[in-house]
């Protein structure tokens, strides 16, 4: 794929239409992430961050799973070095996303690359990487990414306010929203036996690592699942 396969919008109505289409495509995930955003906001306040710092986690860091883990580490008074190493581990999947999006995004001008790179979450990746074979539309991706950014930050703000005012918010099980969101992203995209194998290996391995408190279990499980699924697909001669 090269730069000629990027959609060029010549006028604003056409850009706005693509932007709205992207926002609409990510909307289910924006809604699903609301409880998770509330959790992130309220948990940050509970861990002792100021409201401004709590909002900055969502506005600047903008990474749900990294935020939750980092907040837990703030609470425990962890050192900066261990926080950064943990962040690197959790965020490592984004290396994979940016590699996967490289053919579409790297030919774009710098401001587009920076913007879409900043907004490249699991959710944006899920909608932008879906239409294989179709031309890449930067405005569609921007609509998805920016609307999701807004939703995440509004939900976090609600959590920050609620966390300061509602007792026992942590017993509501808001973390189920993480599971629901990721199931909604993962399951419909399983299209081949190797994809199913990948999910099952990641599932068993990550639960196993967590039970044994193996550090880096997330990374180990993901790479194991990806490697075995690739080998299986090669062996079976699956078509991509």
């Amino acid at each position: 794929m090269n730069s000629t396969e990027t959609i060029l919008h010549l006028n604003w109505p056409s850009k706005c239409k693509a932007f709205a289409k992207g926002a609409l495509a990510v909307l289910p995930l924006t809604i699903a992430v609301i409880p998770w955003g509330i959790l992130a906001g309220s948990y940050a306040v509970e861990a002792g961050l100021s409201p401004l710092q709590s909002q900055a986690m969502s506005a600047i860091l903008f990474a749900g799973s990294a935020q939750l883990v980092a907040t837990g580490m703030f609470k425990l008074g962890a050192g900066l070095m261990s926080m950064l190493l943990t962040t690197m581990l959790i965020t490592s999947r984004h290396f994979l996303y940016s590699m996967a999006m490289r053919p579409q995004i790297s030919p774009l001008p710098l401001k587009w690359r920076l913007l879409l790179g900043y907004l490249l979450t699991d959710e944006l990746f899920a909608i932008a990487n879906k239409n294989k074979g179709q031309r890449f539309d930067p405005w569609y991706a921007l609509g998805g990414g920016l609307s999701f950014y807004l939703g995440w930050n509004i939900a976090s703000a609600v959590g920050i306010i609620a966390g300061a005012n509602i007792e026992g918010l942590d017993s509501w099980g808001l973390d189920f929203a993480i599971a629901a969101t990721f199931i909604a992203i993962v399951v419909p995209n399983i299209k081949q036996p190797s994809g199913l194998l990948c999910v099952l290996i990641a599932l068993v391995s990550s639960v196993f690592c967590e039970l044994l408190a193996i550090p880096g279990g997330l990374l180990i499980s993901a790479i194991l699942a990806m490697g075995l699924a690739t080998m299986y697909a090669k062996w079976r001669g699956e078509e991509q």
Partner: peptide
């Protein structure tokens, strides 16, 4: 396979 593997984990 990165998205399903990481998100499942």
């Amino acid at each position: 396979y990165s998205a399903p593997a990481v998100l499942t984990s």
